[in-house]
């Protein structure tokens, strides 16, 4: 897994609530057997007219040239619905390292963390402040300090992450290595609970 410490970047504002994982990556793209190349189909049906890459929808934020960067900012309840990790893979493959929202769906949050994409939960008020910024403004996210800052105004908020996951993200460790090292404890548990 990729590690993540600090990032300062422009952001893409997605002012839509309840973004479900079917929108992030439609089911017809789930037929892959690898994790590669999902970014080009991220938000596919919101991005293109009639599934045609030559016809980008002008009103969708990913198609608006002034908006770019490694941070996606979305309205509340981001990532609801299907458990498909393909949603996290497509967000990562598109180039996002951080997703900011006032509320994340549980499974998406875990999937993002397991792929080195940091979900940052902010207050509704702070989210509105971010949405009020211009296309050239930047956000800074510092994982060690657990802060997110609107650089233009200096407004800052702390975000929550448990210290285990934080260590994993800072160092690029993954849970499976941890669990593989726990085999004796797991076997002892099995024996005791037979």
């Amino acid at each position: 897994m990729q590690s993540l410490q600090k990032i300062t970047s422009k952001f893409i504002p997605l002012r839509i609530e309840n973004v479900d994982t079917d929108q992030i990556i439609p089911a017809r793209f789930l037929k892959a057997t690898t994790k590669d190349g999902f970014g080009k189909n991220l938000f596919r049906d919101w991005r293109y007219e009639n599934d045609d890459e030559t016809k980008p929808k002008a009103d969708f934020v990913l198609n608006q040239k002034q908006y770019n960067g490694e941070i996606l900012v979305a309205a509340k309840n981001f990532g609801c619905g299907s458990s498909r990790e393909h949603a996290a893979w497509s967000i990562q493959d598109y180039g996002f390292k951080v997703v900011v929202s006032s509320f994340f769906a549980d499974i998406f949050k875990n999937n993002a963390l397991n792929n080195g994409v940091l979900p940052v939960t902010v207050s509704d008020a702070f989210l509105q402040q971010i949405f009020a910024q211009g296309a050239d403004d930047t956000l800074s996210v510092d994982l060690a300090a657990q802060t997110i800052t609107i650089d233009a105004t200096g407004a800052q908020e702390k975000f929550e992450i448990n210290s285990y996951k934080k260590t994993c993200m800072l160092n690029g460790y993954d849970d499976i290595d941890y669990l593989l090292n726990m085999k004796p404890e797991i076997e002892a548990y099995e024996k005791a609970n037979q």
Partner: peptide, 18 residues
Amino acid sequence: FGIGTSEVEMVFASQCIM
């Protein structure tokens, strides 16, 4: 409960999940 594919791999590896 439903899980992502990294978690499927966790359960494959250890029969446990975080």
